[in-house]
Computed example of a mutant assay.
Amino acid sequence: MAASQIQAKPKVIVFDVNETLLDLEQMQSSVANALDGNTQLLPLWFSTMLHHSLVSTVSNDYHDFADIGVAALMMVASNNQISLTKEQAKQAIVPPLLSLPAHSDVKPALAQLKQDYKLVSFTNSSNNGVKAQFQHAGLTDYFTHRYSVEDIKVYKPDLRAYKWLLEQLNVAPQEALMVAAHGWDVAGAKQAGMQTAFIARPGKALYPLAKQPDYIVKNLEELALLLTQK
C-alpha cells in the first residue's frame, strides 16, 4: 500500500542490499552457532553492529562493515560469558555473508522494474563484498551500478551518505526512490529528500518518530506492481 500521496515517477530506484534483497537466515544460523546456539542474542548482535557503525561515522574512524560485525559479535559473546576468538567470529560472519541467497520475491520484481527504471544498489557493505554477494545470488545483471559507503566512509543513515549517492547519480533527491527493509534506512533517505519505500519483511518495523515512507509493502513484487502502474 502507499503510505502517502503517490509521488512522481522516479528516475532511478536505489536498493539496500542485506535483508532487502538478500536473505540473512543462513548467516543468522552461523552467528547463533557461534553464540552457543542462543538465538535470542541475534537481535543484540545486529543492533550492536549498527550502533558501532554509527560510532565509526561520528568519530570519523571508518572500519569495514564486516569488521564491525566481527567486533560486535565478540562483544556480545564476551558479555554473555561465551568463549569466541576473532577468527571464529570472522568465520561465523564473512563466508555466510558473501553467499546469501536472494529472497524469493527479488528476481521477479527486479526483472519487472528493470524494463522501466534504472536500478542501482547502495549498501553499508564493502564494494568487493557486494560484488561477491551479487555474483553468488545472481543479481549482477539487474543493476546499472553498485554503490557502497566505503567510497565516502560514512555509514547510512547519515545524510551525507545519501547526498553523496545523489551526486553520483546526478539526480535531485525527489527523483530517486530508496527501497529498504530497514526503518533507519528509509528514515535517513526520507530526511535527505528522497522518495522511500519500506519493505515490511518479517521482524522489521518503521521508526515511529521518522517521516512516513511513500510506500509500505510486504515484498518487492508488490512494490513492482505499484511502480509499473505509473
Results as ranks from 00 to 15, higher is better:
V31K: 05
L44W: 02
F65G: 04
Y62A: 11
N33A: 13
L42Q: 10
A34F: 02
D36K: 10
L22W: 02
D61I: 00
P43T: 05
M74D: 00
G69Y: 00
V58N: 11
H51R: 14
L84Y: 04
N79P: 00
A71K: 00
G69C: 07
S30A: 11
N38W: 00
S78L: 06
L42E: 11
Q88S: 11
D23N: 15
I13Y: 04
T39W: 11
L84F: 07
V55M: 10
N79R: 08
S29K: 14
N18T: 12
D36M: 06
P43A: 05
F15N: 09
Q26V: 13
V31D: 03
M75P: 01
N80E: 01
M74T: 07
Q26T: 14
E87D: 12
I13D: 06
L24E: 07
D61A: 13
Y62S: 12
A72W: 01
S29P: 00
E25W: 06
Q81W: 01
D36H: 10
T39A: 13
N80A: 04
L44A: 13
M49S: 15
F65K: 05
S78V: 00
Q40G: 13
N79W: 00
Q40W: 00
Q28W: 07
M75C: 13
S53C: 11
S29L: 14
Q81S: 15
G37L: 06
I68D: 00
T85D: 01
A77M: 06
L41A: 02
V76D: 05
V14I: 15
Q88M: 06
P43G: 05
E19I: 11
S30L: 03
V55D: 07
V12Y: 02
N60Y: 01
V55F: 05
S56P: 05
D61V: 02
L50V: 14
